[in-house]
């Protein structure tokens, strides 16, 4: 978007709280030096499963595929997102999740369509609702949504979340100011406000995802926030994540995704 002149550069002097940001979430490939954007919330993708249905240990995307085709057949849900769905098969095969290699994407398509899709019951934007409604045993999910769902459960032992190996999406929602926005000062002030430690904590508590500022984890611990491990993945998890890119293979991914959806519904 910045390339197309749709965003205006941020004036950092108007956002003194930028200094609160955790370096893990600044200076990303798409915006080196945070000229246009600042992380608003971040999270990762994994899956959550019903431990009464799936009793074996689960750790990787391959485990996800096996369980979906086994115990959780017909009770599996995927995310309603082409990139995320493709990342299951690419992850299981140990490929780069952002790959544009046609052969690898063909292989990914085959696994998704022929193996996974026939066992899938639903595609969700958020897994929490699916968990609460019942009837499902394995759901691809963002970490914060899985936490929301688990917080609603009467039996906390029932569900378990996995940060799957070898890799998964590290996504960030960003603040940015559109070119020609009527009140840039107010916008800067809002961003600054959102990055203050107090507000950042409140935000995190409400949306269930961290804001990308420093010290949130410690604060969460002090305040006794439930299931903190689902808000803050460990550093070794963070290190293996792959931020998703919108690349030239997006069209192919949408195609794979549409075919998978059609196959699941057939």
């Amino acid at each position: 978007m910045a390339e197309h002149g749709l965003l205006q550069p941020l004036q950092k002097d108007l956002i003194p709280n930028f200094s609160n940001m955790d370096p893990n979430f600044t200076d990303q490939v798409w915006d080196p030096g945070n000229i246009y954007t600042i992380c608003k919330a971040w999270g990762t993708t994994g899956y959550v499963y019903d431990t009464y249905t799936i009793t074996r240990p689960m750790a990787s995307w391959q485990d996800f595929l096996d369980a979906a085709m086994g115990e959780a057949s017909g009770r599996t849900a995927l995310l309603e997102d082409p990139w995320e769905v493709c990342s299951i098969a690419l992850g299981a095969a140990g490929e780069d999740l952002n790959t544009t290699d046609e052969e690898k994407l063909d292989a990914c398509e085959q696994v998704l369509l022929d193996n996974l899709a026939p066992h899938v019951r639903a595609y969700f934007g958020a897994a929490s609702t699916g968990m609460v409604q019942g009837g499902l045993a394995l759901l691809q999910s963002y970490n914060g949504d899985a936490r929301q769902g688990m917080l609603e459960m009467d039996d906390p032992e029932q569900w378990k979340f996995v940060y799957p190996t070898p890799s998964a999406n590290l996504w960030m929602d960003n603040w940015a100011i559109a070119t020609g926005a009527p009140h840039p000062d107010a916008a800067h002030a809002l961003i600054n406000h959102m990055l203050s430690p107090e507000v950042a904590f409140e935000q995190m508590d409400y949306i269930g995802y961290p804001v990308g500022t420093k010290g949130l984890e410690e604060r969460a611990e002090e305040e006794g926030v439930e299931l903190p491990e689902l808000i803050f993945p460990a550093q070794d998890v963070l290190d293996r994540l792959t931020p998703s890119e919108m690349n030239e293979a997006q069209q192919r991914r949408v195609e794979i995704f549409s075919s998978a959806q059609a196959r699941s519904g057939a």
Binding site: Y123, F257, Q261, A262, S264, G265
Partner: peptide, 18 residues
């Protein structure tokens, strides 16, 4: 869910995702 993919969704996907 997966059984609810309708033709309008495919059209919308081409505009909104692809």
């Amino acid at each position: 869910g997966a059984n609810g993919t309708m033709i309008g969704q495919l059209v919308a996907n081409q505009f909104q995702n692809a």
